[in-house]
Design a protein around this nucleic acid. Structure first.
Lengths: 234, 234
DNA sequence: GATGTTTCTATGTCTAGGCTTAATGAAACT
DNA sequence: AGTTTCATTAAGCCTAGACATAGAAACATC
């Protein structure tokens, strides 16, 4: 389809190999020539072939094992990367004006489910925040967040009316590890009220927890406006 | 936390750099020392440092530009990779017995929305399939799929009662490009009937379209059993 | 036949060095 | 002041060669 030559050799080789797989010159399960051989046929160093094949292995198109060689994956488990944009940027990119409102902010003991998610003892006192994000004044996302002041020192001093909690955290506390769970839920009374919709409407829910070396930083449940969808690319 | 030395140097360097970022020795927006300098301080070749920093750039933790140097990303756009498992494997991994039922299979002209999604002319004749996947006899996923016999030759000859359409396609037609969209929908009458739930229940919906060099292969809408959730990792 | 041992090989990883290229700041020129 | 030119520099990418190591296959032993 689009065969413009790629700038660098590794990518050129990767896409040639990809083509051979898609065109079924190399079938699922087949063993493909080894790095040294490909290096000769493509006229490059072995390291370059290695880089290209690694890329394809990361994509899940190839299976590589020492001594056993490189095979075309039989059942490619399809992997996709999705980018969770910062709400404000997302709204502004859509040409709308961003605003947010903090509905509630208090220190309180965490319920059991959040404790489990954050790997903290039940009843630990965290900051609990409810925020709604708007685009041109219309509700777009409802956020229910717990922040751990141990892992995010200084959180008590922040005025979240000025900067939204997500942005403050993201800018100040990079994380090492994170969970992310997508699901669908029927809007309960509160979701419906905050998002300006009817109770029972299907909402896309994203539940996320992040950790750094001091423990769980934050756990948040994001409820998106009905109709919102999340796009992933391979 | 867990400081066991990593087997290879590139990864060891990557995690040391990651640590410095998380511990805020290198703050968001800071420029970090250049590859040559790090190569000296870590006592490795520049290529090794390059590999490590590339990994972190792929993770979205670093921004790298020629001449400008390497900076700690200011607003790390959160990237997550999710693996869409093959339904059967997923069900079997949960210790249940997999089965599927083809509800309908016919050749018919595609409606406008599918045509747009697949970049095909409206009214083109494709194979239309409805399938339900079961775990221990309970409905787990409802699938509504269109297959393009031009991009997937041989599809007319397949008996999808024996092998499910997804597995057949995945095993026979690797793709070059794909779309993936997640959303939430209230179950309509058909969804409710197929998944054995009540109309209006929130369902997680995954809409996926794939292409090879002959055009769109297939476009599918998967409706998951209520309560199903999708887990992504960074 | 089942189980350990050895050999061999394709990939994994690294090094030292070279060339390429894009961004940038400064100098030269409107 | 604004614009163009240009050298500089840090990352991008490649190479040739080396050693390490998993693991398949052949072999030997029980």
């Amino acid at each position: 389809m689009n065969d413009r030559p790629l700038a660098n050799k590794a990518q050129a080789i990767a896409s040639e190999v990809r083509r051979r797989i898609v065109d079924r010159e190399w079938r699922q399960g087949d063993r493909i020539p080894d790095e040294a051989e490909l290096a000769v046929t493509f006229g490059v160093a072995r390291a370059t072939v290695n880089k290209a094949l690694q890329m394809l292995a990361d994509e899940g198109l190839l299976d590589r094992k020492r001594r056993a060689g490189t095979h075309v994956t039989v059942n490619p488990a399809r992997r996709a990367t999705l980018t969770i944009p910062i709400v404000r940027e997302q709204i502004e990119q859509a040409g709308m004006t961003y605003s947010h409102r903090v509905i509630a902010q208090r220190r309180s003991p965490i319920p059991a489910d959040i404790a489990a998610r954050m790997e903290l003892p039940e009843g630990a006192e965290l900051i609990h925040l409810r925020t709604v994000h708007y685009g041109d004044g219309n509700p777009f996302q409802a956020e229910d967040r717990w922040i751990n002041p141990v892992a995010a020192p200084g959180v008590d001093l922040i005025d979240f009316h000025r900067i939204n909690p997500n942005e403050w955290l993201v800018r100040n506390f990079p994380w090492l590890r994170g969970d992310m769970v997508f699901s669908a839920e029927n809007a309960d009374a509160r979701d419906a009220r905050l998002l300006g919709t009817r109770q029972g409407t299907a909402l896309l829910i994203l539940q996320r927890t992040t950790w750094n070396d001091l423990g769980a930083i934050t756990s948040v449940r994001l409820a998106f406006h009905p109709g919102y969808c999340l796009i992933a690319s391979p």
